[in-house]
Design a protein around this nucleic acid. Structure first.
Lengths: 327, 327
DNA sequence: CTAGGTGCAAATAATTTGCAGAGGC
DNA sequence: GCCTCTGCAAATTATTTGCACCTAG
């Protein structure tokens, strides 16, 4: 919540250092929410009235180019600016009555945008989603939503929740798979993976606790990251399929599918973490899930091969041996 | 493609009739794409240089209030305007290089927006989705996309395609279900529904042909309406489930689920049609699908009841009769 | 006759620019 | 000393407004 970065540490993106600019940047980063150029100018003027409006404009422009700030347009006829440091890309709900905005992120929308741009052969650089309407507070009169605080924390919270659900469902999946599997070798693979998921789960839960310590109200804040289907963990569907009865080979295939989704999840979200510790955990897990994936694929190939050999030797008992055609 | 509405026929939304206003509105409606106030002013000036800039601004404002035009903001520091007459709400892909924009619609995004607003207790009135980037033409140099013509036609085309796929998959579903069903009464229900779907299919295909006559290039234009999962028809999944083997009761349940989706589809899209003929077909079908739904539900209840009675009478043969507990 | 509609010019509001001077490297 | 940053004032751009006049109902 604290620990502001020094301007020097931010992507320097060319340009000279200057005390005024640093001052403006620092004041900007100290603010929350979406400031207009004029809002910022007023605040700056309170601290130091020898800074001109033009400099504020120029510095804002510089910040956008340097990736410190993002320019957003709520259709008010002027621009507003928001941090991009510790503030992942997101979408907006904008209340037309009180003109405050609240933020959310949707993996599903991002996935759809990818589909649409692919279909139209369009290279997207930025996606704006703005939902205009009336917020709960303006409609019912009672205070409802917690302030739109540090989305970095909310992002981390929601990504961790999904990750925890995923590891939990993964543990369930592998435990169940180990119980069901006939083949001794396959069983030991599943047992090993269950153990690793248990370990991941511990790490993630510890990290989640750390976050809660940083802000005790964190759990009660509204959802920030919407990700349909991942809420119950990416292995949930697979675990359910197991309970409907499958053979060893099918179990491996389901595991491969889930593990692929899980790897993708950790990679993609790890890259978006601004918090370096969470980022590290996610990227590390992404690597490990990739290894799991490779292990499962190897195991699947081995099983298929052994089954084929077994079948062939059974057959060779009552039929003349054939020269096997390659592959 | 032609047949412009007379200003008099448009939602009059108060205000007096005036030759200048009618002139401006008619010029506006004759244009395609997204005009800025100044673009429109220039065009008007070509025809009649005794119209002032202020009047153009005032008329645009009036058009937005009257629902003839929509104000859109591409972050250029000025607004643009697009028809809303015969032009369903949609989202935008905006090329930063040539600053042209192309349009699309995504049912999936709309569904997600509903989820998000429900979670935040937010009443949405308008959703803006803008994807900024580089279009194919600017990236590769070669002409690619057809002009961004009448989206009403594109909407109708895509909605009809989905509808046709749905009826086709529905026909497949009911035919298959009729073949599988043990119960004679249930079988005749499925046969009847198959017949109705066949009839719907004919109507829709005829309508689709009519559209193609209006614009021979229509089929080659890019997708406008994205609707994941509906592309193969809303019964496709159900039909597949049937082929994996189900009993009579399960078949009815699957039918109920598909039919519910289908009813919702025709209702929702029927309401969005600007073309009155398409609208009528869709809304009529929505009603009929609702009837189908009711029929399936009745049939399901009847089947369950008959099965229960059958079971009870079997049991009563070897066990003493029990007073049935009310349900 | 009268409530709107219209033209013209001036006002506004956000942002940018030209230019001369100040300051970091 | 050079090059960039900065302040100030003037310019630009999109849009709105005040006011006198005009016109349809």
């Amino acid at each position: 919540m604290t620990n502001f970065p020094n301007v020097r540490d931010l992507k320097p993106a060319g340009g000279r250092r200057s005390s005024k600019r640093e001052q403006i940047v620092n004041v900007f980063l100290r603010q929350e929410g979406h400031l207009s150029a004029d809002d910022l100018f007023d605040i700056i003027r309170n601290e130091d009235h020898r800074i001109s409006r033009a400099t504020v404009y120029r510095t804002l422009q510089w910040m956008v180019e340097a990736g410190i700030a993002r320019k957003v347009d709520f259709g008010e006829g002027r621009f507003r600016f928001e941090h991009s440091y510790r503030h992942p890309r997101h979408f907006h709900l904008i209340c037309k009555t009180c003109s405050r905005s609240s933020e959310f992120l949707s993996s599903d929308i991002e996935a759809i945008v990818e589909d649409v741009t692919a279909a139209r052969n369009f290279t997207a650089s930025q996606t704006v989603v703005q939902i205009y309407g009336t917020c709960e507070e303006c409609r019912t009169g009672k205070k409802a939503s917690a302030p739109d605080g540090y989305t970095e924390l909310l992002f981390a919270r929601d990504a961790l929740r999904i990750a925890i659900a995923t590891e939990r469902s993964g543990l369930e999946f592998y435990t169940r798979a180990a119980r069901l599997t006939q083949d001794a070798r396959g069983r030991s693979v599943f047992q090993k993976l269950a153990e690793e998921e248990r370990h991941h789960l511990g790490t993630l839960e510890a990290r989640y606790k750390t976050l809660l310590d940083r802000d005790p109200q964190l759990e009660s804040r509204p959802t920030f990251l919407f990700f349909k289907g991942a809420a119950n963990g990416l292995f949930a569907e697979g675990a359910e399929q197991l309970s409907r009865g499958v053979n060893d080979q099918q179990a491996l295939l389901i595991g491969i599918r889930c593990e692929r989704g899980s790897h993708r999840f950790f990679k993609r979200y790890g890259e978006r973490f601004e918090d370096s510790e969470g980022k590290q955990i996610f990227l590390e897990f992404a690597d490990e899930e990739r290894d799991h994936l490779a292990l499962l694929i190897r195991e699947y190939r081995s099983l298929v091969k052994r089954q084929r050999t077994a079948k062939r030797s059974t057959r060779s008992a009552d039929a003349p041996r054939r020269v096997s055609s390659a592959r």
